[in-house]
């Protein structure tokens, strides 16, 4: 059992948790994730680790309510427990001195991007963060990201704050106006990562993306999380979750993410009924 020692709302439907998981905290490196099961009968689902503290034995997780399982997680209060937390899983981010690094976050992608930006800065990179959201209210971790980069640029789809448009458009604009980058990391919704890769691909900037396919075990056993990268089938849980974004087959991954859409709707409808 894994105790929730702190919980706060970052944005509508988006919650930050501090969870007691000493073994995970001890070994965690940026880019890694945990598999969580909230309660008996619950699904196993992956969440990227946002931060960890070896001293207190805690890890930070951010979750957005998108289905039944994340909805259940959102209902767990401070002092209560998660049934299972296993990790840290996946390969850590390749963090070394690249030179000028741009970290692009879309929506909840700001959470997994945070430790990566910090890591990139700590090893001496010049780090720019481009943070985007649908609107200002949904933007998360702005202040935290500000402390781990040299320049923070903001974009919103509706223009409520910062650049009016997508992060990929802002990135393209910055590059055209003379900024150059040696390395890019993009984390967020699939279409956003794909759009960023289209831009960075144009300028031949090596780009890492973090993929979030459906997983069951998270240790390489089920193959449900297989993704195609440069034509090769890889498992996101053990070969990733980070891959060369310029080689990812986004279309096929986008289809695969819909695999259990019908069942997810069915689960949500049941929740709605029971709640009513």
């Amino acid at each position: 059992m894994y105790k929730i020692v702190e919980k706060r709302t970052l944005a509508p439907l988006t919650t930050w948790f501090l969870v007691e998981a000493p073994l995970v905290a001890k070994r965690h490196k940026p880019g890694q994730f945990v598999l969580v099961r909230v309660c008996e009968g619950g699904e196993r689902f992956p969440l990227t680790i946002v931060d960890s503290d070896k001293e207190t034995g805690t890890i930070a997780l951010v979750s957005q309510e998108v289905g039944k399982s994340t909805g259940l997680l959102a209902k767990v209060e401070e002092g209560e427990f998660l049934l299972d937390v296993a990790g840290p899983l996946g390969k850590p981010t390749d963090i070394h001195q690249f030179g000028r690094v741009v970290c692009v976050a879309g929506g909840i992608g700001a959470a997994p991007l945070f430790p990566i930006a910090r890591g990139m800065k700590n090893v001496g990179n010049d780090v720019t963060v481009i943070l985007g959201a649908r609107n200002e209210e949904l933007m998360i971790l702005r202040e935290e990201l500000e402390t781990v980069c040299h320049a923070l640029r903001i974009a919103t789809d509706d223009g409520s704050v910062g650049f009016h448009g997508f992060v990929s458009q802002l990135l393209d604009e910055r590059i055209q106006s003379g900024e150059s980058y040696d390395h890019a990391v993009a984390i967020g919704p699939l279409p956003m990562m794909e759009a960023v890769c289209k831009v960075t691909g144009k300028y031949n900037i090596p780009t890492i993306v973090s993929l979030n396919p459906v997983m069951v075990d998270g240790t390489g056993m089920c193959g449900g999380c297989r993704v195609k990268v440069h034509g090769e089938t890889l498992f996101a849980c053990v070969d990733g979750p980070e891959f060369d974004g310029l080689g990812v087959d986004f279309a096929s991954l986008s289809h695969r993410l819909k695999m259990y859409h019908k069942q997810e709707q069915c689960s949500l409808q049941r929740v709605a009924k029971e709640g009513a």
Binding site: E43, V216, C222, G223, G224, K228
Partner: peptide
């Protein structure tokens, strides 16, 4: 990689373990 294709491990793990 089409939806509907899975490994026996995944199929069985979903049904047996989960």
């Amino acid at each position: 990689d089409l939806n509907g294709v899975c490994s026996a491990n995944e199929f069985l793990t979903r049904v047996n373990l989960m």
